[in-house]
């Protein structure tokens, strides 16, 4: 454990808390892509099946359970809560997210640390997480104004994997750890946010409302 890793996980947790606060206090999921949230449920379920096969960890296990529970809760709110579901921008959430799943599954089948059920699913979850933000970014681009909580949510979600990159650099030098699959996927994942980061920081510096061109 190092400071980058701890900060990364806390940032990830904070992003989810921000989203839940937005949904619960404003009773609205406007600006949030259900397709991205669906993909996160799939990501967490396929990655954390190891809850059943791996010894419990005082640090990892609670995080895994919280990520699973919160992602399912968010999707539940957006689909079934009688007030929240009416605020969902269904017509703008146009990204064909099913087309992300098959390529990630094929990639995981061929590129994995070990050809076992758990390891292929783990690889699938790493690849799918890298691209799961795409429907959300497409939805934000079609939004004329983005509320602060939504902007902060996406920023924290992007910052979390960027902090993992620092953690991986640290571990490479301090612990000789080499893990190509999450490194490359994490790099792609962070790169997808580059545009968003640019406009987020610009709007923050100019004290303006966030808007993507």
């Amino acid at each position: 454990m190092n400071a980058f890793r701890l900060l990364a996980d806390l940032t990830h947790l904070l992003s989810i808390i921000i989203l839940l606060v937005k949904i619960r206090t404003t009773k609205s999921c406007a600006g949030i892509s259900l397709k991205t949230q669906d993909l996160y449920v799939l990501v967490f379920i396929s990655r954390y099946l190891d809850l059943f096969t791996r010894p419990l960890s005082l640090y990892n296990t609670p995080f895994k359970l919280v990520f699973l529970a919160t992602s399912i809760t968010i999707v539940y709110y957006m689909r079934y809560h009688k007030v929240v579901k009416q605020t969902y921008n269904k017509d703008s959430d146009t990204f064909k997210h099913y087309f992300l799943i098959l390529p990630c599954a094929v990639l995981a089948f061929f590129i994995n640390p070990k050809f076992t059920f758990i390891e292929v699913l783990w690889s699938f979850s790493i690849y799918l997480e890298a691209v799961a933000i795409l429907p959300q970014l497409v939805l934000l681009q079609s939004s004329s104004n983005i509320d602060n909580l939504t902007g902060n949510y996406v920023f924290m979600l992007g910052a979390y994997r960027a902090l993992y990159l620092l953690n991986w650099i640290y571990r490479f030098f301090a612990e000789d750890v080499v893990r190509w699959i999450p490194w490359i996927a994490g790099l792609v994942q962070t790169a997808l946010y580059a545009d968003f980061f640019y406009y987020y920081i610009k709007s923050w510096r100019n004290n303006e409302r966030l808007k993507l061109p």
Partner: peptide, 10 residues
């Protein structure tokens, strides 16, 4: 190695 990798990250 034939051991599955140890995924110690989230």
């Amino acid at each position: 190695s034939s051991q599955p990798p140890n995924h110690d990250e989230l």
